[in-house]
Computed example of a mutant assay.
Amino acid sequence: MQRGYAPFLYFVAVLGLEAAMQKECRIIEALQNKLTYQQRLQYMKHYFPINYTMNVQFEEVLRVANITRLRDQSVGELSLRYLWLSVNSQVLLKIWAVLPEKHPSWEYTRDLCYLFEQLTEEYENYNQGNMDANVWDVVEQLVSSDAGSSRKAVYPKALLDNCVKVMLMLYSESCK
């Protein structure tokens, strides 16, 4: 009798994973539509003062090279996506925090924060036990806003450019 349930349970599990991935891909597609080059240029460069930079933690500058290095260390794809989500959620909150409510980029940044919040809900069951140690250390450092962490002055547009490049790298295969 139990043998008959195994294929059924497997089928239900696969359907559940597929549905979750479809929702994640819809959010990623919405992010891609919101993070076009023209919008990043307009909202994160043209609407900011000339040469405006933000001081962020060194770990908040997440580049494709960082992801490649972590992949070479056999860090799982889900851990890399969680790292990308954590880093860029923090970055967007910092950008949004410096904008007055009447700033032309305020609503754009708020919309991005909302999309990242939706994506975070998809990952809410993901915890330390499922995450690679390298990734967990970085996420902990970001969340604690460690004052001992080195800081770096970065343009807001550059932060979102990195966000888009890493997003395309992590999701291009699973969300076509």
Rank of each mutant, 00 (worst) to 15 (best):
G4Y: 10
Q141T: 14
E29R: 09
S149K: 05
A147R: 13
E18N: 11
L35C: 14
N134P: 03
L119Q: 13
A153S: 14
G4I: 07
Q118D: 08
A6P: 00
F11N: 09
A158M: 08
Y52V: 01
E60K: 08
S172N: 13
W84G: 08
E124S: 09
A20W: 04
K34V: 05
L17G: 15
V164F: 11
E173P: 00
E29I: 01
F11H: 12
V138R: 14
L112C: 06
Y37T: 15
L160C: 02
Y123F: 15
A19R: 15
E24A: 09
R3C: 12
I27K: 05
F8G: 01
D72L: 11
V138C: 10
A158K: 07
L112D: 07
Y82Q: 12
E24F: 00
L160R: 00
Q39V: 00
M44R: 03
S150C: 04
F58N: 12
L35G: 07
E107W: 04
L159V: 03
V75Y: 08
N66H: 15
V87P: 05
Q2R: 10
A20N: 11
Q39I: 00
L115E: 08
G16E: 10
L15M: 08
P100Y: 04
Q32G: 14
W136Y: 15
F58W: 06
H46G: 00
Y10V: 15
R3L: 15
L168P: 00
A133E: 14
L41E: 13
